Computed example of a mutant assay.
Amino acid sequence: MKSMMLTGIREMEMQEVPTPELKNDTDVLIRLKVVAVCGSDVHYYVSGKIGSQVVQYPFPVGHECAGVVEKVGSAVTKVKAGDRIAVEPAMSCGECDQCKAGRPHTCRKLTFLGCPGQADGSMSDFIVMPEHSCFPVPDTMSFDEAAISEPLAIGVYAVNRSIPMKGAHVGILGFGPIGMSVQLPAMVKGAEKVYVSDKIDERLQIARNAGATYAGNVETTDIVKDIKKLHPEGLDVVFECCGQKEAIDQAFELLKPGGVLMLIGIPEFDRWSLPVDKGRHKEVTIINVRRQNGALEETLQMLEDGTADVSKMVTHRFSFEESQKAFDLVASYGDGVMKAMIDF
């Protein structure tokens, strides 16, 4: 089969590799149809690492994907050959203290699709995943929607953990795919006002079209001043979705006393710097978001019934052979890109 390998910093090469085989009776062989380029994939492409996770070349990244079941192990009952599926890229052990406590997303032995040292990614014709990572989707759901259910589930999980009530006033700092994945469920679940910031005007227009109350470019306007003028009491929840240090200072300024800061973005540095005095006086609650926990089924239902519309998230398409062009575009934030899809 073909596999698009990272071979160095900002380097990719299509290689022929053996098609993976079923090793366990609960394994599922999947023929990939589409892969969405994620910001974390781009971190590996441009930096060769995320924190302690360092790429050993050659290596295929990718984890936001959907496809068709090719073959199943003898004990698989959830899916069958020919089924169209969404893929949950996290593979938990089911046996450690975290899994038994209902926290499989922080499993002690977690392996993740496209994570160096854990599992090869989905930039290949075929992958093998355990049955519990495979979710059947109806014919009415596109493969794009099935793949995007992965980042959207992160937003659903973060919203479920943080928005205290209907009528909440919410800030989203960074409106890439994760920012949009927060906005959509926040509005579904009753957020009254959503205030968005980003550096790309095309993304901000998508936010407005999706119902944002305010969408400001941080490079051309003082978004804190603007939002405080619109809502001087302060926001209930701010979602940090960009991994930028200045967003933390903005969040503490924007939050009301007793507000909640959700840290979702993946920064390129190792330590956050927090304004202690303001955080202490406001008694701000800070919650780190580690992907999602049990939100994928709800997310797929939202996509199936049309409650969440992710059609505007996809802005660019590339063939499998053009994967490097997709990564270069996303890495440069070029042409107003939101989500680039790679078709097999």
Rank of each mutant, 00 (worst) to 15 (best):
A212G: 07
I286D: 04
E13C: 13
F143Q: 02
E321G: 15
V42F: 01
D201L: 11
K339H: 06
A153C: 11
E246A: 13
Q15C: 14
H169G: 08
Q244N: 10
K23E: 13
N217D: 11
E131Q: 08
I206V: 15
N293P: 08
A340H: 01
A326E: 01
I223H: 07
V137Y: 01
V55P: 08
E11D: 12
F59S: 11
K100C: 11
S197A: 15
R203V: 09
V224N: 01
G8E: 02
T213Y: 03
K189Q: 15
C96S: 04
E192P: 06
Q301I: 04
V170T: 03
V46E: 08
H281S: 14
P136H: 00
L6Y: 03
V79K: 01
E322V: 06
G176A: 06
S149K: 03
A215V: 05
F135H: 15
M262N: 09
K225M: 07
S319D: 14
C134W: 00
K189N: 13
R161N: 14
S142H: 09
D305G: 12
D222K: 02
F327N: 02
F143A: 08
S122I: 05
M123F: 14
V284W: 00
M5F: 12
T140W: 01
F59Q: 02
C93A: 08
G114W: 03
A168G: 13
E150D: 14
M1A: 07
R161H: 08
S52C: 06
V17A: 12
T111P: 05
E298V: 09
G211Y: 04
L184K: 01
E240G: 10
V188C: 14
R271L: 11
K78T: 13
H169L: 12
T19S: 12
I248G: 11
D343G: 04
E219K: 13
M14A: 15
K229N: 15
K199P: 05
F135Y: 15
E298K: 09
S133N: 15
M341R: 02
E246D: 14
G176Q: 01
D198V: 05
I9V: 07
A119C: 09
C38Q: 03
G167W: 14
V284F: 02
L230W: 07
P151E: 02
V35F: 01
T106R: 12
E11M: 13
V55Q: 00
G73V: 03
F143M: 11
V137N: 06
I50D: 03
E283K: 07
M4R: 07
K78Y: 07
D305M: 05
D27G: 07
T26A: 04
G179H: 03
F344V: 04
G211P: 02
F327P: 04
I264P: 07
D222G: 11
K2D: 08
L6N: 02
V68I: 14
A101L: 06
H43V: 02
I264Q: 00
H316N: 13
G82R: 00
V188R: 14
V314M: 02
V310Q: 02
D277L: 12
G48K: 01
M341K: 01
P60S: 08
R290E: 13
S124R: 13
D41H: 09
N217R: 10
N288W: 12
